[in-house]
C-alpha cells in the first residue's frame, strides 16, 4: 500500500511539473531551451530522489526487499548506467532493456527504481545533468513500472512478444512525454503552428503537439522503439531466465 502511494506521489509530482506550464496565462516563452523548468526542475529532482529512497525504505520495512534485493538493484543499476554509453542510430538506447525485463520479473516497484536510478547514475557518470534529468528519471521509471504491471502469459514466446510490444510502445511514448518538458517553452517566429501558445484549447494543443512530434521526434523515437524490440528479441529470454533463477533466492519460507 505504502509502496503504491509512494510511486503514485512520484508520478503525480512529475505529471504536475510537466503540465503546469500549459495552465500559465503568460508562459515564459521564447526562453532558450536549457532554461526551461530551471526553477522547478531541481525541486522535482530532489523530491524524486527522496521518494525513490522512501520506496526502498518502505520495501525494506515491509520485508518485500532485503539486502539481497538491494544488492541486485544496485548491480543492475550500475550495469544499466553503463549500457547507456552504447551508441546507436537516432534515439536508440540499450537503457530500457533491463528496466523492462526486471520490472516484469521482479515487479513494478523494482522496475521503477531501476529505470529512474540508472538514469540518475548514468547522468552523473557522463551523460550530463540538466533540467531534463528528473523527467528522464520519471519516464524511464514508468517504463519499468508498467512492465511490472503486464500480465505473464503462460507461453514464454507470448511473454517475450508482449514485452517487445511494450518496448515498442514505450520507446515512442518515452519521447512523446519527454518532449513536454521543453515544448511549451519554445516559440520561434516561424512555424508557430507546431508550438504551444498560452490560451490554446486542449484539442488545438494536441493537434499542434501531434504535428510537432511527427515532424521532429518520430523518426528519432522510432529508432528507440525498434532498438527495444530488437534487444528484447535477442536477449530477453536468457536474461529473464537468469533473473528468475536469482529471484528464487530472494526469500525463504519457514515451514
Amino acid at each position: 500500500m505504502l509502496n503504491t502511494a509512494i510511486l503514485l506521489a512520484a508520478s503525480l509530482l512529475g505529471l504536475a511539473s510537466l503540465f503546469y506550464p500549459f495552465a500559465l496565462p503568460n508562459a515564459p516563452q521564447g526562453l532558450p531551451t536549457p532554461a526551461a523548468h530551471s526553477a522547478d526542475a531541481p525541486l522535482v529532482f530532489i523530491a524524486l530522489v527522496v521518494l525513490c529512497l522512501a520506496a526502498v525504505a518502505a520495501n525494506l520495512a515491509s520485508r518485500q526487499m532485503n539486502s539481497k534485493v538491494i544488492a541486485v538493484l544496485g548491480v543492475l543499476t550500475g550495469m544499466n548506467a553503463v549500457l547507456r554509453a552504447i551508441p546507436g542510430p537516432g534515439g536508440f538506447s540499450a537503457i530500457f532493456l533491463l528496466p523492462i525485463l526486471c520490472g516484469h520479473a521482479y515487479g513494478a516497484t523494482f522496475g521503477f527504481l531501476l529505470g529512474s536510478l540508472s538514469l540518475l547514475v548514468s547522468a552523473l557518470i557522463g551523460a550530463g545533468v540538466g533540467p531534463w534529468l528528473p523527467y528522464q528519471m520519471l519516464c524511464a521509471g514508468w517504463v519499468g513500472m508498467v512492465a511490472g504491471w503486464l500480465p505473464r502469459p503462460r507461453h514464454p514466446k507470448m511473454e517475450l512478444a508482449l514485452l517487445a510490444l511494450w518496448g515498442a510502445v514505450s520507446g515512442l511514448a518515452f519521447g512523446a512525454i519527454m518532449n513536454l518538458w521543453f515544448w511549451p517553452f519554445i516559440s520561434p517566429p516561424a512555424q508557430h503552428h507546431i508550438y504551444w501558445e498560452p490560451g490554446l484549447g486542449l484539442l488545438d494543443g494536441l493537434r499542434r503537439y501531434a504535428l510537432f512530434y511527427a515532424l521532429t521526434s518520430l523518426w528519432w523515437d522510432a529508432m528507440r522503439a525498434a532498438g527495444n524490440v530488437l534487444l528484447i528479441a535477442l536477449f530477453g529470454r536468457p536474461l529473464l531466465q537468469a533473473l528468475r533463477r536469482f529471484q528464487r533466492r530472494f526469500h525463504f519460507a519457514l515451514a
Binding site: K68, R248, R249, F250, H251, F252, A253, L254, A255
Partner: peptide
C-alpha cells in the same frame, strides 16, 4: 541456508545459543 539460498526451512537450529535462521 536458508538466508542466502531461499527455499523452505523447518525445525529449530541453535549455534552458540543463537538462531542462525
Amino acid at each position: 541456508v536458508p538466508n542466502f539460498y531461499g527455499g523452505v526451512f523447518g525445525g529449530v537450529a541453535r549455534v552458540c545459543g543463537r538462531d542462525p535462521v
